[in-house]
Write a protein that binds this DNA or RNA. Structure first.
Length: 468
RNA sequence: GGCGUGGUGCCCAAGUUGGUCUAAGGGAGUGGUUUGCAAAACCAUCAUUCGCCGGUUCGAAUCCGACCCACGCCUCCA
């Protein structure tokens, strides 16, 4: 069986076939760098990370490009509000974004094209569309895409252009469009744009909302590539418009598989800036929730399923991660002399994992496969049936699975802010007390540290501690 | 108004091209083993039931019809 992906454009699962042998080219819509991204945004980037990691697990070579939108209404407005240049603003949030990706253990894309570096190519594409009659210029120096010239408009979002209800924003728009649904390819300069403008055949202005992705994806990945992802809110209008522009500009197929991730919810409402119900990664780390718990929570609900955020889920997530980590630790130290090399169970787990994940990244099924191996392995170690070689094989298997999950070795991202020397001293005192069978004194020290949020864990290798 | 998604145990959640579902997996709970204590681990237990009603069928969580509830898109948004 091949991998199946749910393709937004056909609204069904399709067998995944790569254009160029073993090399998958994917374009993933990145952030607009005018503010910190919230974890709803990261849900999508996390999904894209899972997708890429799984393709790699299955032996594909993946080339991923993620755009950074560093010029648009939001970035311009915010930089003016703060009285700094556009570049100063976007540099700040590009850095924050990369830092967050690192914290969340999201593999860096191979390419991070930035809109402002592709303006010349965007102008070319707009000109191309105009030359072919797909676009027209208005008196204010803007250029619009004429959707009436493109018969497939609405194919991705499954919207009929004739039935689309005009939103307020459209009717209030001061630009002079011929058709209400036509969208801007190039926006003529307005005073609110300040010093953000480029010279073009239509005069001073800046790129429209969607042209950057058409240009950067086709420039970097070729006119026709495999996968294009984003959140479901990108389906319309962003990806619909991008598709129209690209197909009309290149005259070729654009994208084979459109994959979109669902929203992260808070109290059953979409997490968004406007509802003010969002959490940033930084918020959660400050509240003491480790990055691996956040990663686990975001990655372990199927990407096309709405996910309701709660701190309770973060706590559950942490425990699941711990269970995997403890399992690996236990395997590492295992010294039993059983004869079971675990090869049967490993094969079952790999097959079960692959079958599940091949089915449109069915992560729940994949996790079931992993945890069944965990339970079997623990039992086998407890009963001394596992061989040391078997333990090693299971470790290798778990680490292969973790290439997809990416949680075993990630850093919590928390600032510990505790006096380690003090804690070590207390642990030493407690050890001495316990050696004298003075358990009351030992427990007093345990309680003291617990009051400071430090939990002590006795292991065969000595006492460890963690900050809760 | 148009288009669409989802309702499964205490919580999260897979299964939804009908039988192998006497319904995975994670978390919580309960009883036990182990541990000076704690943690971890292991064993056992935890839905005659899949939003509601009706239908098709030898057989339905899975198919059909009606209904209820929640959410989303049609406007910048991951």
């Amino acid at each position: 069986m091949s991998i199946q992906f749910y393709n937004t454009i056909s609204r069904r699962k399709e067998a995944f076939k790569v254009i160029d042998q073993n090399k998958v080219r994917m374009y993933t819509c990145g952030p607009t760098v005018y503010d910190f991204a919230h974890i709803g945004n990261y849900r999508t980037f996390m999904f894209e990370d899972l997708l890429r990691r799984y393709l790699e697990f299955r032996g594909y070579e993946v080339v991923q490009a993620m755009n950074l939108t560093d010029v648009d209404d939001n970035t311009i407005r915010r930089s003016r509000e703060r009285g700094i240049s556009l570049t100063e603003l976007t540099d700040e949030f590009k850095a924050a974004f990369h830092a967050d990706l690192k914290t969340l253990n999201i593999q860096p894309a191979h390419l991070y094209p930035e809109a402002t570096r592709f303006v010349a190519e965007m102008i070319q594409m707009v000109q191309n569309l105009q030359d072919q009659g797909y676009a027209y210029q208005t008196e204010d120096g803007s250029v619009y895409f004429n959707i009436a010239k493109y018969g497939q408009y609405g194919k991705l979002a499954h919207l009929n252009p004739d039935e689309m209800v005009s939103g307020e924003r459209v009717t209030e728009d001061s630009y002079e469009k011929e058709g209400a649904r036509d969208f801007a390819l190039w926006k003529g300069y307005k005073a609110e744009d300040g010093d953000v403008h480029w010279e073009s055949p239509w005069g001073k202005g800046r790129p429209g909302w969607h042209i950057e992705c058409s240009v950067m994806s086709t420039e970097l990945l070729g006119k026709h590539f495999d996968i294009h992802c984003g959140g479901v809110d990108n389906i319309f209008p962003h990806h619909e418009n991008e598709l129209a522009q690209s197909v009309c500009a290149t005259g070729e197929e654009f994208v084979n598989y459109w994959l979109h991730s669902e929203y992260l919810l808070v109290d059953n409402k979409k997490m968004s800036k406007s509802l003010n119900n969002f959490y940033t990664l930084r918020d959660l780390l400050e509240q003491g929730y480790p990055a691996e718990a956040i990663r686990w929570m975001l990655i372990t609900t199927h990407y096309r399923q709405k996910l309701n955020f709660s701190v309770g889920r973060l706590e559950e997530s942490q425990k699941a991660v711990n269970r995997l980590r403890e399992f690996r630790n236990k395997l590492t130290k295992y010294v039993g002399n059983g004869s079971d090399d675990a090869s049967d169970r490993i094969r079952i787990a790999r097959d079960q994992f692959t079958v599940a994940m091949d089915d449109d990244l069915n992560i729940s099924g994949g996790l079931a496969a992993i945890f069944e191996l965990v339970r079997w392995g623990n039992r086998s170690m407890d009963q001394g049936e596992l061989s040391v070689e078997g333990a090693k094989s299971i470790i290798i298997t778990i680490e292969r699975f973790d290439h997809v999950l990416g949680v075993l070795d990630m850093d919590s991202g928390l600032d510990h802010q505790v006096d380690e020397a003090f804690i070590e001293e207390k642990i030493a005192q407690r050890k001495a007390a316990r050696a004298n069978k003075d358990f009351a004194a030992g427990d007093t020290i345990r309680d003291e540290l617990a009051a400071l949020g430090i939990e002590l864990i006795d292991t065969p290798d000595g006492t460890k501690w963690k900050a809760g």
